[in-house]
Design a protein around this nucleic acid. Structure first.
Lengths: 246, 246
DNA sequence: GCTCACTGAGTACACTGTTCGCAATTAGCG
DNA sequence: CGCTAATTGCGAACAGTGTACTCAGTGAGC
């Protein structure tokens, strides 16, 4: 009975598995290299260009050799996500509580914008690798303050990250308007000629039409930054009202 | 020179193209049927199970016949998204402005939870088909009020939808914890034994550890509904503060 | 120096979205 | 009515994808 050529231990998340260092030949690559290769490809050509074959080729390995380092593609994405956060500066405490929270939101948005594919990854796989943990630690240190229970702190950070994720998703989708066929409503209206006019002029959507005609923000070149700052302001105001402005 | 076997007109979004009714044989299927088939599959087996072959088989058509109805897979998803909103009741105006906004958020969350794949679709392809338009109209009617400019109204609706999208994304990802390897931090800690203890007990992440140990909300079976209601409350409070509570 | 866990990698399989080409159908026009 | 031209259905084919299996080669620990 031959040994069934054990692959990476099945029951542990990648971060709980030691990297190489066993008995056989020393691994030719490292998780860092692999993550970096994936990030390079994703940043340059989009997340769809990240395939096992492509990443393997990028680091000069055979396609299936990747599976010695990673149990499946999802784990490769985990590596990439954690590494991406590692490249970025941690949020730091601000002058006061609200300023600190604002800083968390800004930095988080910055990471997601720098690596657009990050926002599309499943938000439920928190990148709990070393870098993700450092981010969490930093955020909780900023958000925690006397008078707040652990649940309160969790709610604050959660609400904040929820807003950031949602905003950046919309932002990115709209930014890619040219490449994909998804476009901002305003551009879309203009592009679709007859159908657009039918909607605006048809009288069936009066409130929608009024907004479309009167709104100026869709034409603002800085509309993303503007709406992020504004929306963040509302959320922070709500949080401060609920948990004290200290 | 033979006619190049024209496929669906290239320059128009699917909603601007008439459905069948031309010269040749009458189409054997309808966009409605196709969208319904896609939704059935996606609801039952997840969005990844929705392939052109699978949808075609579901309606009893040859695989490539689908391309007579839809220019590519993205358009199929557009059909599905719009149809999904069509199955749901429109948000209705509430007792006052805030109640109306709350209703928008609740209804929106309901749709996304009923069709988990919806939240993952590109948010920048607004489903501007007939049903999506009816939703937009309803939402703007509720959010608009005297004293608000078009840009204000747009900001209000945008902030609200941003929060809902972000929350539901996190919610769904965490709910699928069992199926995927992404899990809620608390469960994850418990499952990963040694690594989890190393994080909590290691002293390198004091704030994080404190939260993890003290927080009770991760164990609350209603935690999603609770955190949605709470987060929504903060956002609404912020919006009301900015635009008057009228 | 032997053992055996481990690494690298080629082959293969079942799938994906989509293009091409062709036969069959039928609405509109003369 | 009969002809034409636009449309539909669809099989075949292509370039990809993730990953399971297999096997040879390596080198640390006993």
């Amino acid at each position: 009975m031959t040994t069934p050529d054990a692959r990476p231990a099945a029951d542990l998340v990648i971060w709980a598995r030691p990297e190489g260092g066993g008995r056989g030949p020393r691994p030719a690559h490292s998780r860092q290299d692999i993550a970096a290769a994936g990030i390079t490809i994703a940043d340059a050509e989009g997340i769809d260009a990240v395939s096992m074959r492509r990443v393997a080729a990028e680091i000069g390995a055979g396609t299936t050799s990747l599976y010695r380092y990673v149990r499946n593609k999802d784990e490769l994405l985990d590596l990439m996500a954690d590494a991406a956060f590692g490249q970025e500066e941690l949020p730091a405490a601000g002058a006061d509580w609200q300023a600190g929270l604002r800083e968390i939101a800004r930095r988080n948005r910055a990471v997601l914008l720098r690596h657009p594919w990050l926002a599309a990854l499943s938000p439920g796989r928190p990148a709990l690798g070393p870098n993700g943990l450092r981010w969490l630690e930093a955020m909780f240190q900023i958000a925690a303050r006397p008078g707040l229970t652990a649940d309160d702190t969790l709610a604050v950070v959660g609400t904040l990250l929820t807003f950031v994720r949602g905003h950046v998703s919309t932002e990115l989708a709209e930014r890619q308007a040219g490449e994909r066929s998804g476009v901002s409503p305003a551009q879309w209206m203009a592009a679709q000629g007859r159908y657009g006019e039918e909607i605006i002029g048809g009288g069936r959507y009066p409130a929608l039409s009024k907004i479309m005609v009167e709104a100026t923000s869709p034409h603002d070149p800085d509309r993303f930054a503007t709406s992020f700052t504004a929306g963040l302001g509302y959320v922070l105001a709500g949080l401060a009202a609920a948990f004290g402005t200290g």
